[in-house]
Design a protein around this nucleic acid. Sequence first.
DNA 1: AGCGGAACCTGTCGGC
DNA 2: TGCCGACAGGTTCCGC
Length: 272
Amino acid sequence: MPELPEVETVVRELREEICGDTITSVEIFRSNPIVQGDLDAFQEQLSGRKFLDVTRRAKYLIFHLEPKRYLVAHLRMTGKFIVSDPLPEPTKYNRIWFHLKSGRLMIFDDIRCFGTLEVYDDLDDSKSLLKLGIEPLSNAINPSFFSKRLASSKREIKSVLLDQKIVAGLGNIYVSEILFHARIHPQRSAGSIKKKEWSMLIKYTKFILKEAIKNNGTTISDFRRVDDKTGTFQQFLKVYDKKEKPCTECGVPIKRIVQQQRSTFFCPECQK
DNA sequence: AGCGGAACCTGTCGGC
DNA sequence: TGCCGACAGGTTCCGC
């Protein structure tokens, strides 16, 4: 479900809502496979800790707690965080309730239970965070890095852009959109991408992610913000989920293909 | 190194 | 209506 802009939206809203509040207790309705390991330990590690900040790394949410500790969360496909007034009963897909000192609840809700919640005393202990590549919105990202590193790569560019070890935070929707704007065919090999094309990819990656964040992300079916509102970037999508619809630039029908078991949408005329 | 396929789950939608 | 397959903003593991 959520990619970088959706996670960024949730992080900003959570930061606003919960900083300064304290977890009094943790109620688990279903943990498998969201929380690995000892549930009692999980509850104990979090109870009594105060939220100092909420930040994002790629598609991970990082809750900074005091005394020092971190809750690292990934929403995967259908995970959600909701801050609400107390409820009499958990709703159907509420998996975990974080009871807060203010009386409110921070709810982790997840239809498919792919989401993950992990606790660390030190962020360097998180293997998943350490593996991540460069943040696409960082200033450090530049065309030479990619053209050098991937000069001899035969991998399809779509696959490379989705690889979190290389660029961290892009997902299936935005990769299709970025490739369309950069006019690059998703099946091109990474090694065939010219330096100028890498510049275009970087330019449109930043542009699209920033625009999507301004619009609070994309809601196709079930992405929701902390306050249950939807994102609005879907109205600006050019190719994702537009199979057979005319390309906005040239009118040729958008094609859908499958790469790495996932849909890719592109314009066969504009993208070469 | 990197591909395809399956797995982790639950739901929706379209076709017959 | 019902059943069946395809598909879903993600990641990981396994075998070649």
